[in-house]
Computed example of a mutant assay.
Amino acid sequence: MRRTPARRPTIKDIALRAGVSESAVSFALNGRPGVSETTRDRVRRVAEELGWQPSAAARALSGEGSGTVGLVLARPAKTLGVESFFLQLVSGIQEVLSRRKLGLLFQVVEDIDAECAVYRRWWAEHRVDGMLVVDPRGSDPRLALLDELGLPAVVVGTLPEPHTEYPGISNLWADDALAMASIVDHLHGLGHRRIAHIAGLPDLTHTRRRINSLRAEADRRGLRDVDSVTTDYSETQGAEATRRVLAWDPRPTAIVYDNDVLAVAGLGVAAERGIAVPADLAIVAWDDSVLTRSTHPALTALVRDTAVYGGHAAEQLIALLDGGPAVRVQDELPHLQARGSTAARAAP
């Protein structure tokens, strides 16, 4: 037998139980003048008893907000299935938003133009009250667009220098340059002098900072056999890039990968080539995850609580929605966790 779906309580239901007019209920629930405090309290108590909630559409039409924030990710969808960073980031964001009964509207698109189109559509449809923005670019049209639309936003990641400050846009970032320096310090201390870097998407600000930091650290130590290769973060391109750098002459003795998926793919290529890790090749992953901890050997990786990082971004956005000023906050620097994939380099 087909069940009749439960009916949502309405303003009419509240008015009947409270013994007032529907207009009085509307005034009371929307905080408008025209009813006594006694009536207002009675209406709100009845609404709570009935489990009434205002519809998002009605709130948007009345200018009260949607109760939702947005996150659009302009990356190839195929790279997201096994990458843990964004799953952890979103879980931290959602945990903080849920405390304020805010929803998260999430969409994956192919490129930055499509992302901007989503911003315009969500703004026009009153779908979101603010945005979380990831993967800053060197020339990034999203910030000016969000400022134009008047959408509060938090950019997660390093902004390019110089950049325009906008009154409604905050920034949460960690220092990728210092993180890369810590990796080079570790590898150099183990005796590695030929270092390859399998990087992510080339137009991202953090990719450029990592590449530039690697080059600066290499120059400071007089290392000549150091270079970076960019990828789309996928396992396929990670494996292809690893095969390419392992064909260099001289061959690198260490490879740094910009995420856990790339690093695990690289470890597989080393195994297929009969290259022992860490005896013949050291491997470092930028992001720690269950993947990096489950391989043999386990992979040395940069460790941070990504869910907490996401929570901090959500807290910044809530502060903007509450009328606070835009801020720029440097988050905790990831620390390097040495594991079995790096070891002292035997003398050549």
Rank of each mutant, 00 (worst) to 15 (best):
33 P>L: 00
6 A>Q: 11
284 V>W: 08
117 A>C: 02
265 A>P: 10
192 H>T: 10
203 D>L: 10
241 A>V: 11
211 I>Y: 05
294 S>A: 15
88 Q>L: 12
28 A>E: 06
337 Q>V: 13
317 L>R: 07
75 R>Y: 11
163 H>R: 15
202 P>S: 15
216 A>C: 03
150 G>R: 13
39 T>P: 01
337 Q>R: 12
6 A>M: 04
42 R>P: 00
238 G>S: 08
246 L>M: 15
45 R>T: 14
2 R>F: 05
130 G>P: 03
72 V>M: 07
250 P>C: 08
316 Q>C: 06
347 A>R: 13
133 V>T: 00
115 E>N: 08
336 L>Y: 01
156 V>Y: 11
77 A>E: 13
165 E>R: 15
332 E>Q: 14
184 V>M: 14
323 G>K: 06
344 A>M: 02
91 S>M: 09
183 I>R: 13
331 D>W: 04
348 P>A: 09
82 V>W: 00
14 I>M: 03
159 L>S: 10
302 L>E: 04
234 S>E: 01
315 E>C: 01
73 L>H: 06
326 A>Y: 06
80 L>Q: 15
164 T>M: 13
322 D>S: 10
203 D>V: 14
3 R>G: 04
165 E>W: 12
155 V>D: 05
309 Y>G: 02
291 L>D: 13
84 S>Q: 15
303 V>K: 06
155 V>R: 07
326 A>T: 08
127 R>N: 00
280 D>P: 06
40 R>P: 07
183 I>P: 00
2 R>T: 09
65 G>C: 09
21 S>H: 04
243 R>E: 14
27 F>M: 08
156 V>N: 08
281 L>G: 08
172 L>M: 11
145 L>T: 12
26 S>P: 06
260 D>R: 00
146 L>E: 13
241 A>T: 11
238 G>E: 07
26 S>R: 03
323 G>R: 06
343 A>D: 02
276 A>V: 14
287 D>V: 07
106 F>Y: 15
186 H>M: 13
44 R>G: 02
235 E>W: 12
181 A>F: 06
61 L>I: 12
191 G>I: 14
332 E>H: 05
7 R>F: 00
293 R>K: 12
318 I>F: 08
200 G>R: 03
271 A>T: 12
233 Y>T: 09
214 L>A: 02
193 R>L: 12
335 H>L: 05
213 S>L: 05
287 D>P: 11
82 V>D: 10
133 V>L: 09
341 S>C: 01
41 D>V: 10
320 L>K: 08
313 A>D: 02
163 H>F: 10
246 L>Y: 04
245 V>G: 01
171 N>K: 09
23 S>Q: 11
7 R>L: 06
20 V>Q: 03
314 A>F: 09
166 Y>G: 11
231 T>S: 03
241 A>E: 05
6 A>F: 03
340 G>S: 01
203 D>I: 08
236 T>P: 02
97 L>K: 03
203 D>E: 15
113 D>L: 09
246 L>S: 10
262 L>S: 09
231 T>M: 12
59 R>V: 10
301 A>Q: 00
203 D>M: 09
319 A>V: 05
255 I>E: 04
267 L>R: 05
148 E>Y: 09
170 S>F: 10
273 R>I: 07
332 E>T: 15
246 L>T: 11
227 D>L: 14
138 G>W: 03
77 A>K: 11
60 A>R: 07
191 G>A: 12
114 A>E: 15
239 A>P: 02
342 T>A: 03
321 L>A: 03
240 E>A: 15
